[in-house]
Nucleic acid binder design. Structure first.
Length: 211
DNA sequence: AGTGCGATTGACT
DNA sequence: GTCAATCGCACTA
């Protein structure tokens, strides 16, 4: 249990190794499901902040709701990197979103990380967010990015090696994974491309989407 | 150059 | 439940 002593102390209490790129499914929807239960790790000057991924969405090849739909632009170029790289962009002028590129190099598709269960560096996240309540620290893509201080400086980083931001394994298996429509989109809105850890209090979305 | 619109959030009725 | 903030990008002219 973390007691929030304000100092360094959290590093090392959770052992994690980076995800191997070769193990990542070469398919966006499969990757979105695969990432549920994996660790998202942020290395900051104050220490580590990390959590377990509990909610993702797939933006697949040819998806009218995906940012890559109209081809590569200055903003979305990281979506076209080999799978396992970060695509970070600013939504609504105020919230950063973290995606994981998901296909072969040159193909634009990605997985949006929508929520994590905070596990390490919780006091760092509280300071980054300016709120106390654990459940709300990283519930939602913009909140998650704020909690982990993720911004466009991290666009394009390799998430399969230790560094400022990376993905890690956990020993345990995730629980039951639910599936629903994606949140907040209008095009291709019926597709069941949102994945979440069923029963987790740290996922976003209306009650009816989370059953 | 101008316009419209989000892969959201937080404040408010 | 409703609604405005806020800004980069796509699209039109």
């Amino acid at each position: 249990m973390f007691t929030g002593t304000g100092g360094s102390g959290n590093t090392g209490s959770i052992k994690t190794v980076p995800l191997a790129r070769s193990k990542l499914p070469i398919d966006t929807a499969a990757l979105a499901r695969y990432l549920i239960g994996k660790m998202l790790v942020r290395e900051l000057p104050e220490g580590m902040a990390s959590g377990r991924i509990v909610e993702t969405e797939a933006y697949v090849i040819g998806d009218a709701a995906g940012h890559a739909f109209r081809g590569m632009t200055k903003r979305n170029r990281s979506l076209f990197l080999e799978r396992g790289h970060a695509y970070v962009y600013l939504a609504y002028g105020s919230s950063y979103m973290l995606n994981v590129s998901s296909e072969k190099p040159g193909i634009g598709a990605g997985v949006l990380i929508r929520a994590i269960e905070p596990l390490q560096g919780i006091e760092i996240m509280r300071l980054n967010r300016g709120i106390e309540r654990l459940r709300d620290l990283a519930r939602g893509p913009g909140r998650l990015a704020a909690a982990l201080r993720i911004d466009s400086a991290l666009d394009g980083v390799d998430l399969c090696r230790e560094g400022p931001l990376w993905l890690g394994h956990r020993e345990d298996e995730p629980g039951e994974i639910g599936q629903s429509v994606r949140i907040g989109i209008s095009r291709d809105a019926h597709r069941l491309l949102r994945f979440y850890l069923r029963g987790s209090p740290f996922i976003s979305g209306r009650r009816s989407l989370n059953e």
